[in-house]
């Protein structure tokens, strides 16, 4: 028995030591490789910047090893696309990506591991490799699980304006509102109109798609779709109305302020809150008195929205100060005081 345990412990220790030596060897090799890549990058970057800017006639020569070429070019272009190098011409960056990386990514999509395929998809999108549009779409058709690869592949297709994914956006179950918005963000106006057409002509469309379309257009202040969004504040579904009101806040306008009137007295506190927000966002000081009345609303969020938006109006702070000092209602005094002193959160 003792011998068996001695052998087990000794065997495991020996196996670990072997693994340790392998890891040390790999690490030393990886550090060496990394140093080489960095050296190449440091010497090639200024030369390539000159070349891209047209200040150098011929293209600098990359290391001979294919894998090193891909690594150096991928990192260099990633840095160039990050925008830290000023006005580098995107067309030339794209040409370099097509020349050195497209074939590599095509191979990776076919034969690479899960993580490598996703990395390839990230870069196909970052470098806008149009030549891989068909490959990306066919790769998408092969995916069965809705994981990161599925999402990134859809993003790539959307970025490359692949029309065949529109039915997926509109009909696929389980896509979140946020993710659909990410896809809409990538589509051009022509494809956006096609999405709207599908929304308007299909009865059983997923609510997430409607939410995403309304919200996204508000956030982007997309004028062509303003009237569609505004129309949605009369939708029979409460959630759709709320999304439309929120979106109008982002537009910062309504075609006629009178459309807000019924919402100030809505039975739903969310609608009262959004009405208050819209009055502020659209800068409608004629509603100051209405907002003052909402300071004593039963719901904290409505009071908060009313106070926050009164502050946006001329003399808003003075009005809130008066309320904080003299109002008979304790809720109103409290929220006015709070609004005058507390501001939180940043939007980067």
């Amino acid at each position: 028995m003792l011998d068996l345990f001695i052998w087990i412990v000794a065997g495991l220790l020996a196996a670990q030591l072997l693994i340790l030596f392998c890891l040390i060897f790999w690490k030393a090799r990886a550090i060496g490789y990394e140093n080489k890549v960095n050296e190449s990058l440091n010497s090639l970057k200024p030369q390539y910047i000159e070349y891209i800017k047209g200040e150098r006639p011929s293209e600098p020569s990359l290391p001979k090893s294919k894998s090193m070429q891909v690594m150096v070019m991928e990192r260099m272009l990633d840095e160039f696309y990050s925008g830290n190098y000023g006005d580098l011409e995107e067309r030339k960056l794209n040409q370099l990506a097509e020349k050195y990386l497209a074939a590599h990514y095509r191979r990776t999509l076919k034969k690479g591991g899960w993580a490598e395929r996703i990395n390839a998809l990230y870069f196909i999108e970052d470098f806008y490799l149009l030549s891989l549009r068909e490959d990306a779409y066919h790769h998408f058709l092969k995916l069965k699980r809705q994981d990161e690869e599925f999402r990134q592949c859809l993003r790539v297709c959307a970025s490359l304006q692949e029309e065949r994914i529109l039915p997926v956006i509109v009909e696929k179950e389980g896509l979140s509102t946020g993710f659909i918005k990410e896809l809409l963000f990538r589509l051009n106006e022509i494809l956006m109109w096609k999405i709207l057409e599908k929304i308007e002509n299909k009865d059983d469309i997923a609510e997430n798609v409607v939410f995403a379309f309304i919200t996204f257009n508000g956030e982007q202040k997309n004028e062509p779709f303003f009237s569609f969004v505004e129309k949605k504040i009369y939708d029979e579904r409460k959630e759709v109305r709320l999304k439309a009101m929120n979106s109008l806040c982002n537009y910062g306008k309504v075609s006629d302020p009178l459309i807000l009137d019924p919402f100030f007295a809505s039975e739903y506190w969310e609608e009262r809150m959004y009405a208050a927000k819209l009055a502020g966002a659209c800068y409608l000081p004629q509603y100051t008195q209405t907002l003052l009345e909402l300071l004593s609303d039963a719901v904290w969020w409505v009071r908060f929205a009313a106070a926050e938006n009164i502050k946006n109006f001329p003399d808003g702070e003075a009005l809130l100060r008066q309320v904080a000092l003299w109002d008979e209602d304790a809720y109103s005094r409290d929220i006015a005081k709070h609004m005058l002193t507390r501001r939180g959160g940043i939007t980067a």
Binding site: G113, A115, E116, I118, N119, Y122, F123, D126, E148
Partner: peptide
Amino acid sequence: KKLSRNEQ
């Protein structure tokens, strides 16, 4: 293991 976390 090989996933680019920053791109993600």
